[in-house]
């Protein structure tokens, strides 16, 4: 695990961060968890992440705004959207605005891991699923 993936995870549901942080750490991700979108935006301005995972429906600032902020700030960062309000129109909007992928809640940790793996591949690094001890790579 020489080059860790820097991941920012933003969801106003605390449990999401709490559970996903260890799940992603297993595949070699260094995860920073945020519940407040404003704090997350500040952090994104400070640091370039490899991957940003963000919820869409949040108070104040929504995920699409976060996506726009990230693509403007750091074009190489892959943004993965997760939402409970998945609809075709929203999915297309997110993709059109440059999201890497779009996942509907509820999802399994592996769903996100797979997407992160393909994002890592697109970034030129690779993720070793077997190292994390997960059976279905």
């Amino acid at each position: 695990m020489t080059d860790q993936l820097e991941v920012l995870l933003l969801d106003d549901e605390p449990i999401v961060g709490k559970r996903l942080k260890p799940a992603l750490a297993k595949i070699g991700c260094n995860v920073e968890v945020f519940e407040n979108p404003r704090a997350a935006l500040d952090r994104i301005s400070e640091k370039e992440f490899d991957i940003v995972v963000t919820d869409i429906r949040m108070d104040e600032i929504d995920g699409i705004q976060v996506l726009e902020h990230v693509t403007q700030k750091s074009p190489r960062t892959k943004v993965i959207m997760i939402t409970g309000y998945a609809m075709m129109s929203l999915a297309r909007e997110a993709m059109g605005k440059g999201a890497f992928d779009f996942i509907a809640k509820p999802f399994q940790p592996d769903d996100l891991r797979k997407v992160i793996a393909s994002a890592a591949k697109a970034l030129g690094s690779s993720i070793d699923f077997t190292a994390a001890g997960i059976d279905n790579a």
């Binding site: 549901e13 449990i15 559970r19 996903l20 429906r57 939402t83 309000y85 509820p106 399994q108 940790p109």
Partner: peptide, 21 residues
């Protein structure tokens, strides 16, 4: 239905992580 997805997701993630570890 959409609103329900949030707690369901929390349950799903929690249960899966518990299964895994």
């Amino acid at each position: 239905a959409h609103e329900l997805n949030n707690p369901l997701n929390n349950i799903m993630l929690s249960a899966h992580m518990m299964l895994e570890d």
